[in-house]
Simulated assay, not measured.
Amino acid sequence: MGTGLKARVGKYADNIRVLDPAAFDAPLAAPADKPSEPLPEKTLIEHLRGNRDMFAEVAPDGFELEAMLKEAEAALLGSDKLRKCDHLSLLGAVMSAAQLGLRIGDEFGHAWLEPIWQPHYAHTTDGKWTGHFRARLIVGYRGMIALAESHPKISTVIGVQVGAREEFKLKRGLKKDKLKHTLHTGPGTRGDAVAYYALARYTDGSTKFWHFTRAEAEEHRDKFASQRRFNEKTGEWRVVGPWKKHFDAMAIKTCIRMLAKQLPTSSALAAAIAVDGGVRVDLGKDGIHHADRPETLNSNAPSPDHEGGHGDGLAWSPECEYCVDDVDGEKHFEQHATAAPVDGCAYCEQEAAWRGLPTGSPA
């Protein structure tokens, strides 16, 4: 979220009507030169608050539901694309978090709300497909560890990355596998990650583990990553999303998922694996097992954001690290950011589409 939350709250006040502005320590006043207009439907935050009782019915005893709902609202305030998602998928994602007893956001690292672009969402009046953003729940490896440890036969579950400067030995045997990992305790860093493993210790002292080398993790990513984007210049698909931004965490999470197949059956962990990364619109209690997978949503099609078109002509974004040295692109963007309409400029029409602005308006 960062320190820019208040600025974003003010900027998007017209699109998000929060019922209790004081909860966010900042008034949600609309800009003076652009008065708020009544919205034809409930906002996503209103949907969340209006369905609190539904979440409470499925949440485990003792779960801090109110805190989780505030985390979901904060996630909405911090993401343009999440605010564009349909309300059913958002309710489904939050309901899954409540049902599993997982908190949302970086503080606990249990789970996150993530928007995903679905090109084939609905038909227009002329019979053509139209796309839409939908929300899904991404369960982090810490969330999976918490659920695995809830089984009465399991004492501890850990997920670890192995640094290049650390001693790591693995021996497979007919009766018992042996794993030895000596952490680097001297000066300097542990080194780049060269391997990952997840280990479960049972209450009787026995253990189970699953191991990946970095090369094996990369191979798994290339084969199974659900978020990809097509590069028109190279004619190839490339991996984006969590596997691109958080490779080590995703590798550890994959080890835990593979290890879960060897552990005693846990209904909570099985449900988390079933709903992880899926879009849930079935709000019944069993709907957590019937989330739509990204493949069925055709989510591999290019997502309408700046990254997908970076480098095409003068497309430029102030939030893109690769645009820093694009002087011409920055000047072009600034000209349209002042008052010039984007209508008629192919580059800025695309940029407007990425930013959710109507064609013909100032950038």
Rank of each mutant, 00 (worst) to 15 (best):
L5I: 13
V9K: 11
R17P: 00
L19Q: 10
A26C: 12
F55K: 11
E57Y: 09
G62W: 12
A67W: 00
A72K: 12
A74S: 07
D80Y: 15
L82R: 11
C85W: 02
D86E: 10
D86Y: 13
L88I: 02
L91M: 14
M95S: 12
S96P: 00
Q99D: 07
G101T: 10
L102I: 12
D106S: 05
F108C: 03
F108P: 01
A111T: 09
P115W: 05
W117S: 05
Q118N: 11
P119D: 03
Y121P: 01
H123N: 03
H123T: 12
T125I: 04
G127R: 11
G127S: 06
W129A: 10
F133M: 06
F133L: 01
R136K: 14
R136N: 04
L147D: 02
K153S: 14
K153V: 01
I154F: 11
K169Q: 12
K171Y: 08
L174H: 05
K180V: 07
K180G: 00
L183E: 15
T185A: 13
P187F: 09
G188I: 10
G188D: 07
A193M: 04
A195W: 03
Y196E: 09
Y197L: 02
A198V: 05
L199T: 04
F209L: 07
R214N: 01
E219N: 06
F224L: 10
S226V: 09
F230S: 09
E232C: 01
W237M: 15
G241M: 06
G241F: 07
W243N: 06
K244V: 01
K245I: 03
I256Q: 09
M258L: 10
A260V: 08
K261V: 01
A270H: 08
R280V: 15
V281L: 07
H289T: 05
H290F: 11
A291V: 10
S299N: 04
N300G: 11
H310C: 15
G313C: 05
S317G: 05
P318Q: 05
P318G: 10
E321A: 14
C323G: 13
V324T: 10
G329I: 07
F333T: 00
H336W: 06
A340M: 15
P341R: 12
P341K: 05
D343W: 10
G344Q: 08
A346W: 13
G360Y: 13
